[in-house]
Each structure stands twice: as C-alpha cells, then as structure tokens.
Amino acid sequence: MITKRKIRYILVESSEPIDAGANFLQIRDGIAHFIGELGAVEANIRFIKQYEPALFAISVNRGTEKKAVVAFSMVKQVNGRPIGFYTLKTSGTLRSISDFAATLG
C-alpha cells in the first residue's frame, strides 16, 4: 500500500539574501552535519519555494520539524559565506506559509 507523505512546511528567513534553491545542497549538508545523514533522510528536507531574496519555504516529514528548526540554527555558513537562518513559521499547508510570507513583504 502506498501511503501519502505527511509533511510540514517551514518558512525560513536568512540574514543575507541567498538563492536557496541553487544552494540547497550546501544548506542541507549543514543541517545533516548536525542531525546526521540518517536524521536528514528521516526528515526528507526539500526546497519548496523562494518568496524573496532572503525568504524561502522548505518541507520536512511530519514529526521531524522541531529537529529541523534547531538544525537551521546550527548552519552558520554556506559556500564559505557567513549566514544565519531564522525559522519564522511551520504549517501543514503551503497556502498558510505563502499567506504569512505575503504579510512580511
């Protein structure tokens, strides 16, 4: 039986503008450095959408979002460039995340 993947979306802001889609492997590596490769596989972190140069959404498997939120605090550089990530909101629907992102604009 195929079961539907239950996911949570996380809205992330970065301290500097970043193309999160193009740099997502590096961001994911930073997260995996903290939660481990197995943790990253369990979380199944995926880039979803870039809203603004420093605002993007990712998805993780439900139940792993708290771990992902902490792991984002641990990533302090991408491609050798200092950067910080702040998680602003988690939600079960992308619409809710998009609506929230629109209010930040």
């Binding site: 802001e13 301290s15 708290k66 771990k67 939120v69 902490v70 984002f72 605090s73 302090k76 200092p82 950067i83 910080g84 702040y86 998680t87 602003l88 909101k89 988690t90």
Partner: peptide, 18 residues
C-alpha cells in the same frame, strides 16, 4: 554578537526542548 547568530523565538524554544 552578529546577525548570523540571532535566532527566532521558535528556534530558541526548540533549542530549549533539545
């Protein structure tokens, strides 16, 4: 001491839980 090390309240709560 810099913007990179700031965290959202959600991150601080999750870190406290960790």
């Amino acid at each position: 001491k810099s913007k990179e090390y700031m965290m959202s309240s959600m991150q601080l709560i999750s870190l406290s839980m960790a």
